[in-house]
Design a protein around this nucleic acid. Structure first.
Lengths: 333, 333
DNA sequence: CTGTTAGCGCATTCAT
DNA sequence: ATGAATGCGCTAACAG
């Protein structure tokens, strides 16, 4: 591995000159510049990124925290972040939070100890306070799917309320009047807003909100099953079901089928997020798109602005749209 | 950010002593050791990993190359690698190859420029030669799902032949005699071996191998559809279909349904890999499990041995097993 | 525009 | 067992 010294020697200049042409900041005599460039090629010189980091206290690496690596939703997120950042020659250190406070904290400490220049997080368990602390400790933070008071410019969010509204309105337009709802955990803002949108759609249609038709689950496939069972046990009839995410919708669908129902005719179902497998389930899932890839890309651009002096336009709030497939049909009756 | 100097000063010792207690290699006087430890706590000292890397030319980071980030299969791989490595306090830099030679090369160069201590790759397009070069250039490499002559100890593989065999034998046991096969690209070893296993099962059962019943696809969902259509156009009847992976199976399933077939009765289908969505498709997919997470974990352990002096047991070849669900049923006739 | 010099924070000789 | 000195490879003042 040749060092910058060898390049300098071969080019007959000082190492500062080499550094200058390498970084292209200061201007350098054309002739010398060419000599340096040749030397670089001849020696196949590669700057040592570690030494560079030590000298300018920037690692060109961004820490990423996601709840899981093997979920389509977060896969889309990582994909977008990675490609955006790598295009800017930054790299991504990915850690997993497992939806657990301790693990998330651990992961963040880990990223900090790696001297990341910034953090992009989909944090589930960490407190607002903790996240604020990090940010104020000079380590810029971008938050996806999270809203924090003290950090307005760094929070990239979906308009979840609108998404919930769209899902339910679609069913209303199909003629359904008795619409059940499988909610996510209400301590999470997104789950809360989605439910709120659902209720607004109901209200606008002049329909009452029956708490017997709402089940509070945990965004899991399992809770999709449990929730559907529970709702049916309550004996309040419904012809359609909105699920707060596609996992719950998938659980509800297989549960319904196990119960001998014929989908979509016996029950119309709408999901939320439009994850990859949404079109693998049968009937193909009508759902609300979540532009997570766009949001993730935006979080990366925000960091590129904030830390590396780029000036991309940033957009903080994203709009969901309805994706109509086959799991929700007209109410016959 | 306190440095090792401040710790030394506060503890009233030299920085070498601090370094010693931090790294625990050399022995240190008990009293001094305690003073140092206190100073570390009081100052909340965190060693600077960049400086450490520069001094001992190890970054404690492992580069990972996968074709995509948003696919369940590679999600499982990354998940296993990340957790194994992080438990050893190493970190993972993930890059994407997109199944494209140029991108893969680019990604690897990137990882090299980041001074990774080792590379774990699921490389699709890179040549054996190139991979060997890297390994011999002192940068240890572990290869998942790939077999290279010159690198026998670093290749973690599935017994794909056995997997193909299991899939077809299952159908034979269900009474099928006319079994079609949707293959992956035969220039890839795994696709080749899976097909080989299929043929062996056929031969063992005394059945002929009819090339009209084999379609060469590209592992994509789209090719699952195209393949099924093509096979049916050939007008050689078959009652069962083995697909070289779950994506093709999924494509074939929706295609079959679009054709008005009733599954699984009109056609039994077996997949391969058992990716997450395998139980989301309908009928739930009978498939061959691919213990990719175990393999990935093993690749990480291999690296931990090779680079960081651990001594985990390593296993190079993994066995697939049949996962029976509902997409393949008894042949009636 | 160019070269000299001094760190960046730590590990590691080498003496003691 | 401990401390002083040196270097890892590079960037960034600082002079000239």
């Amino acid at each position: 591995m040749p060092t910058i010294y060898q390049v300098a020697e071969r080019a007959g200049v000082s190492l500062s000159t080499v550094s200058r042409v390498l970084n292209g900041k200061a201007s350098v005599n054309k002739v010398l510049k060419e000599r340096v460039e040749n030397a670089v090629i001849e020696l196949n010189y590669r700057p040592n990124s570690v030494a560079r980091s030590l000298a300018n206290s920037r690692t060109d690496s961004i820490g990423v925290l996601v709840p899981e690596l093997n979920a389509p939703f977060f896969g889309d997120l990582m994909q977008a972040v990675e490609s955006t950042l790598r295009a800017a020659d930054k790299h991504v250190i990915i850690t997993v939070g497992r939806n657990c406070l301790e693990t998330e904290k651990d992961a963040v400490e880990f990223l900090i100890s790696r001297n990341c220049d910034a953090l992009i997080m989909h944090a589930e368990a960490l407190s607002d306070e903790y996240l604020l602390d990090i940010n104020q400790s000079k380590l810029p933070v971008a938050l996806v799917n999270r809203q924090i008071e003290g950090l307005p410019e760094a929070c990239i969010n979906l308009d979840n309320e609108k998404g919930g509204y769209l899902a339910t309105r679609h069913l209303l337009e199909l003629g359904h009047k008795d619409i059940a709802y499988l909610s996510g955990p209400l301590e999470k803002r997104d789950a809360c807003m989605r439910l709120k949108g659902h209720k607004r759609a109901l209200s606008e249609a002049g329909l009452p909100i029956n708490s017997q038709l709402i089940f509070n689950g945990d965004y899991t496939e399992e809770d999709g099953k449990v929730g559907l069972l529970e709702l049916m046990a309550r004996d309040v009839p419904f012809t359609a079901l909105v699920c707060a995410n596609d996992w719950m919708a998938s659980g509800a669908i297989s549960c319904a089928r196990d119960l001998g129902m014929s989908l979509p005719h016996d029950l119309s179902i709408v999901g939320f997020d439009d994850v990859v497998f949404a079109h693998h389930v049968f009937p193909r899932l009508t759902t609300v798109s979540n532009p997570i890839a766009d949001m993730a890309e935006m979080s990366a651009k925000y960091i590129l602005n904030k830390v590396y002096g780029q000036s991309n336009k940033v957009q903080l709030c994203f709009e969901p749209t309805l994706v109509v497939r086959e799991s929700a049909v007209k109410h016959e009756g």
